[in-house]
Nucleic acid binder design. Structure first.
Lengths: 222, 222
DNA sequence: GCAAAAGTGTTCTGGATACACCCATGA
DNA sequence: TCATGGGTGTATCCAGAACACTTTTGC
């Protein structure tokens, strides 16, 4: 029972941290400080260590970039390895993970790379002209598609909000993710079972205040 | 711009070849000839080579096990690497791919490992008692779930049938994959747009013959 | 003619869509 | 009292579920 002799393939994790800010879907990207693609924007990523699980590598990446240690929604997306030249330095396959986080959580905790780290609007990153390092534009496109699809048949949208939230806010999140406006009454019926009224209200200007809800945890034991 | 120094991680592809035979969903498995898990059933797999794409590795695996070179439906499933001890010989991450194939295609073409290769009923492989090598039972479970889900909102079921088929046969495929009976009239309405009548018919016993259909290719340009 | 399975038309119903209206607040 | 956005009820539409029926074959 001998050991494997591994091929010279590097295993990396690429990490997509999404949030919603200023009514836009944004993703964390960092400008590259070295060749290749020096100066261009890239997704954060790390090399997976021999004694490290994939999801641990993803969490490590999150912590290194943002300082966030909390448990956040984390999901493996896809493994990119159909282009042996995707990294000019050698053969790299990369497993992409995405995490969703409410913007409220980011505020205080910004880690070591604070100055360089920035959340950028996904739509702009995907535009024709924009140059993005490696195949990261394709990865980003894939992730956005996944978020859109899952918004339709799961409750991932809730992960963009803190514990407590109002329904108008939740609806806005859905509208941003789906890219279309929704009817208020219908929207509320459709998510009704996933929320519970906290009894609190939020006053917000010259109009009727909103009730504050939280998730119905019974419905979130995936 | 130096080369990466890869960690000692082996990259493998695990391959799930599904077919429907005797009205059962079956998967290709091979008994292991060496330790670890000697004698137990395992999914076929290969080590990914440095100059080889992931999907190529999957196709190579298919060809090695069955001799099938044709283009078949192939889909990346998931990458398993959250257990550093999943293979006792060292750190291995494995990217699982699944392929679907009509049983008619298998008949003639069985490759070199012909005697050992067998299609086994998925339900049985997943049963409590059955021992399966590595984490392959979990992978199989994941794949079956994926097939079930995709049967509901895509046309993957068609890949279990040859070019030409009858609607009762197609319905049976759906019923096997979904694990429940369907109403004939409703089923036909739901898949109507995906098929075209070839004009041919198939006589099949003491009852009205079935029309023979083929896919409506307009609807299959995914 | 009869059994068996193929094939088709019609009703029923629940959920999504669209619209209309009422409510609480600040200024 | 009025503009603003929060909150709710109801009619409508449509796809899928359920059921009933007709058609074509072999014996």
């Amino acid at each position: 029972m001998g050991k494997y002799i591994p091929e010279k393939i590097m295993v990396a994790v690429d990490f997509l941290l999404f949030t919603i800010e200023e009514d836009q879907l944004k993703v964390l990207m960092v400008p590259r400080k070295e060749e290749p693609f020096k100066g261009q924007l890239a997704l954060p990523g790390v090399a997976v260590k021999e004694k490290e699980t994939l999801s641990h590598a993803a969490k490590r990446c999150l912590a290194e970039e943002t300082g966030i240690q909390d448990s956040v929604y984390l999901e493996q997306l896809y493994t990119w390895g159909d282009d042996c030249k995707r990294d000019p330095r050698g053969r790299v396959i990369s497993i992409s993970y995405m995490a969703l986080i409410p913007r409220e959580k980011i505020k205080e905790k910004i880690g070591k790379r604070v100055t360089e780290v920035s959340f950028l609007e996904v739509g702009q990153m995907l535009s024709e002209e924009k140059e993005i390092a490696f195949d990261h534009k394709e990865i980003l496109k894939y992730a956005r598609e996944r978020i859109r699809n899952k918004t339709e048949y799961t409750t991932i949208a809730f992960h963009f909000l803190p514990e407590e939230f109002t329904l108008p806010r939740l609806q806005k999140i859905y509208e941003i993710l789906l890219g279309k406006e929704l009817f208020k009454a219908n929207f509320r019926k459709s998510i009704q079972e996933y929320v519970v009224d906290t009894g609190k209200i939020q006053k917000d200007g010259a109009h009727r205040p909103s009730k504050i809800y939280r998730r119905n945890e019974d419905r979130f034991s995936e």
